[in-house]
Design a protein around this nucleic acid. Sequence first.
RNA 1: UGGGACGUCGUCUAAUGGUAAGACUGCAGACUCUGGAUCUGCGUAUCGGGGUUCGAGUCCCUGCGUCCCAGCCA
Length: 561
Amino acid sequence: MTPSATPTQSNFIRDIMAADLASGKHEGRVHTRFPPEPNGYLHVGHAKSININFGLAGEFGGRCNLRFDDTNPEKEETEYVESIIEDVKWLGGDFGDRIFYASDYFQQIYDWAVQLIKAGKAYVCDLSADEVRQTRGNFTEPGKDSPYRNRSVEENLTLFERMRSGEFPDGARTLRAKIDMASPNLNMRDPVMYRILHAEHHRTGNTWCIYPMYDYAHGQCDSIEKITHSICTLEFEDHRPLYDWFIQQLGIYAPQQIEFDRLNLTYTMMSKRKLLKLVKDGHVNGWDDPRMPTISGMRRRGYTPEGLRNFCARQGVSKTNGITELALLEYFIREDLNRRALRVMGVLRPLKLVIDNYPDDQVEWLDAVNNPEDVSAGTRTVPFSKALYIEQEDFREDPPKQFFRLSPGREVRLRYGYFVTCTSVVKNAQGEVTEVHCTYDPATRGGDSPDGRKVKSTMHWVSAAHAIDAEVRLYETLFTKEDPNDVPEGQDFTANLNPRSLETISAKVEPSVAGAAPLTRYQFERMGYFCVDKDSTPGKPIFNRTVTLKDAWAKIEKKSK
RNA sequence: UGGGACGUCGUCUAAUGGUAAGACUGCAGACUCUGGAUCUGCGUAUCGGGGUUCGAGUCCCUGCGUCCCAGCCA
């Protein structure tokens, strides 16, 4: 991954790596890995992990592997593998041809289990899941030894082999590590290493009917790949002694595990289980719904990899459990989009504006700049005519004090067009303004006034005859509360779903955007950033609002209420 | 409750015994053919109590608070 544009700030993992490199630990190598389970789509929390693992490896001249932790065939699918590969690539993670799977190592992991049995460090246990739970003890009480704990090596070897060959039904037996049922660390109380699962695996098919537990497999996978720094999240801190135990008993290469804080964001959640529920129950339209905190959802919404990376870099790495404000993410998305998105004019909620003194059939193609932040983006022309659409919210018949936009008698600038002055309005039976009439000053063509007179507002517009109809999807946060899990007793997070998280409207957009490919990003001037959705058809573009622009007027208006 | 970890502005992160800093947010202003962008200014923090030290956010003791662990999930 290329170093991010934001200046790198120190973090404790980088410090550890730098120190290790300086001291010659791990033969002076840095080799990390990003180890997702293919049981769902990647989310922005994974983006942070990707940024750390690929970013640090790149920074220190090392490598980072992509490895799938696919030890549970019941939850894992090829669809997830494919989406994860796509998302990591999109974010800029450079894993070369180093795509690995825990399942690649199943035979080796099995052989190691046999080695542990032979060393008297593992045994086949006939207790049911329920019985194991009951004999594990709890936070204050030690556990009880399994009655099968002292089986002979020969018997364990035979039984384990028979487990593998499929003689027993699911759950009948497990292979357990023989450690210490009285350990204050529950992970050390003879944890299960293998369980019987007659399930088809997305890669190994029906080769196996026993599968290693994550805790028994993960550290060894890192060891096999000679990972120097195994970076993971805080909840695995308690598991580190177990991983170290396996590595030590086996006498194999020992990676160094470092734990960091998971990313939490306000108004959303990262639990894959809960995200899956949102998808399955139809609260959103798939994993890549633009309201989802998934990488694919954010991509579809118009977020950029650079914006996401800068956000991750600035959000930081520590061991403090916290919740980062969504505003920080949005800031970095806006910052990136501001320098790269092409500007166009699009009217979200059209109000007709007629210029009474403009020639009936005249059309002028006026120059407009594509990106004031980037002159190399050039210019385009936009059609101007007698009948236009402006934004409904840009006109007030009875303007409040700080409202600078159009109102009866007031002159404003139509961007790149002319100064116009409102002369009258047309209303419907309900008294709503349906049409605004203006006169224009031909001397202000292009938007400049030769006499130097000023105007307090510049507004966007489209020519009614030339505008394209577009569907626009406006998004708000998926949840109404900063913490979606903050619910009354007996309810779940779905109680906090925001009924207004998606609003679909019909907009009028300037013709230059016709035929834009999905994922093309624009700024609709004064309205926000928008991204062409994959549901678009040639005649009918669909835009997702990525994020609004900062809106000073909205703030003023809100305050006055 | 046993174990593990963590407590610095509203939020996220720096400060590695030596002037508590930055970003976001908020507020105020300048500028502007986007009430955008940009620029300027302002504000708020070391969980409490002891101790060590010339000097403590940092080290020690103690109290408090938060998070994680009792899956044959990862």
